[in-house]
Amino acid sequence: MKKFNESLGGNPLRKHVYKEIEKAILDGVFEPGYSLTEGKLSAELGVSRTPVREALMQLELEGLVKNIPNKGAVVVGVTSQDIDDIYTIRTRIEGLAARRCAQNIGDDELEELRQVVELQEYFVTKQDFLQVWHLDSRFHEMIYDACRSRPLKQILSLFHNYIQKAREYSVKSGRAQASAQEHRAILDAIENHDLEGAEKAMALHVNNARDAFFEYM
């Protein structure tokens, strides 16, 4: 993990520390069952114990760690059941975000969404799966923004973050080309302001990604 400048102080420092520990958990650096000690994390991050303690409290609220007597904060992480549940929920509500996006997206946003899909298709031909993965994230983030629903965006952004490794595995499973084609179908529906078509195309895309992940694992 990277070190932070204690002079940042206040909320920025707490936020940076929290995101860094969260990323280590979601990336599998800290595996389920691993004990997180304030002293060791403070030394690794170059900060006092206070922002580390606050970060661990936030992570416990989100269910990524659990406070156990005599052991402290123990990593729970994201289980296979969590991933299954998240994909199931996304199948239900991300289609709604795509529907709202088809209804509300602006011309500039639509042009940027087209560019993202075109770039993803290009990098699929180059078999540059890291770029494909990054563009996949950007595609979904843009739809969350354009749906014009703050609650939807907050929920879906959190879920998308929690299953970032699952999404990476899904791309590595050989689904990159299929994913790009599904993004194209979603884009086509959004361009035509086809609300029902966008919702159905997105639900199919999320469901296919879920199936690919569990087959890969």
Rank of each mutant, 00 (worst) to 15 (best):
Met1Val: 06
Lys2Trp: 02
Lys3Thr: 12
Asn5Thr: 02
Asn5Tyr: 05
Asn5Ile: 07
Ser7Gln: 09
Ser7Glu: 04
Leu8Gln: 00
Leu8Glu: 06
Gly9Lys: 15
Lys15His: 08
Val17Thr: 07
Val17Glu: 01
Leu26Glu: 05
Leu26His: 03
Leu26Val: 03
Asp27Cys: 08
Asp27His: 09
Gly28Met: 09
Val29Ile: 03
Glu31Lys: 14
Pro32Ala: 04
Gly33Val: 01
Gly33Thr: 00
Tyr34Arg: 15
Tyr34Gln: 13
Tyr34Val: 13
Tyr34Asp: 15
Ser35Gln: 13
Glu38Gly: 12
Ser42Trp: 05
Ser42Gly: 11
Ala43Thr: 15
Glu44Asn: 13
Leu45Lys: 00
Leu45Tyr: 06
Val47Asp: 14
Val47His: 09
Arg49Gln: 15
Arg49Glu: 14
Arg49Met: 10
Pro51Asn: 12
Arg53Lys: 14
Ala55Ser: 10
Leu56Met: 03
Met57His: 01
Leu61Ser: 02
Gly63Glu: 12
Lys66Val: 10
Ile68Leu: 09
Ile68Met: 00
Ile68His: 08
Asn70Gln: 04
Ala73Gly: 06
Val76Ile: 15
Thr79Lys: 13
Asp84Leu: 04
Asp85Met: 14
Ile86Asp: 06
Arg90Pro: 07
Glu94Phe: 09
Leu96His: 13
Ala97Met: 01
Ala97Asn: 10
Arg99Gly: 13
Arg100Val: 06
Arg100Gly: 12
Ala102Trp: 05
Ala102Thr: 01
Glu109Thr: 15
Glu112Met: 10
Gln115Gly: 07
Val116Leu: 11
Leu119Tyr: 08
Phe123Gln: 10
Asp128Phe: 03
Leu130Asn: 15
Val132Phe: 01
His140Ile: 01
His140Cys: 04
Met142Ile: 04
Cys147Ser: 12
Ser149Asp: 07
Gln154His: 01
Leu156Lys: 06
Leu158Lys: 14
His160Gln: 11
His160Tyr: 10
Asn161Thr: 09
Asn161Ala: 04
Tyr169Thr: 00
Ser170His: 01
Val171Gly: 02
Gln181Cys: 02
Arg184Glu: 06
Ile186Asp: 12
Leu187Glu: 00
Ala189Ile: 07
Ile190Lys: 00
Leu195Asn: 00
Leu195His: 08
Leu195Ala: 08
Ala201Lys: 08
Met202Leu: 11
Met202Asp: 11
Leu204Phe: 13
Leu204Val: 14
Asn207Met: 09
Ala209Leu: 12
Asp211Cys: 01
Phe213Gly: 07
Glu215Thr: 06
Tyr216Gly: 04
Met217Arg: 10
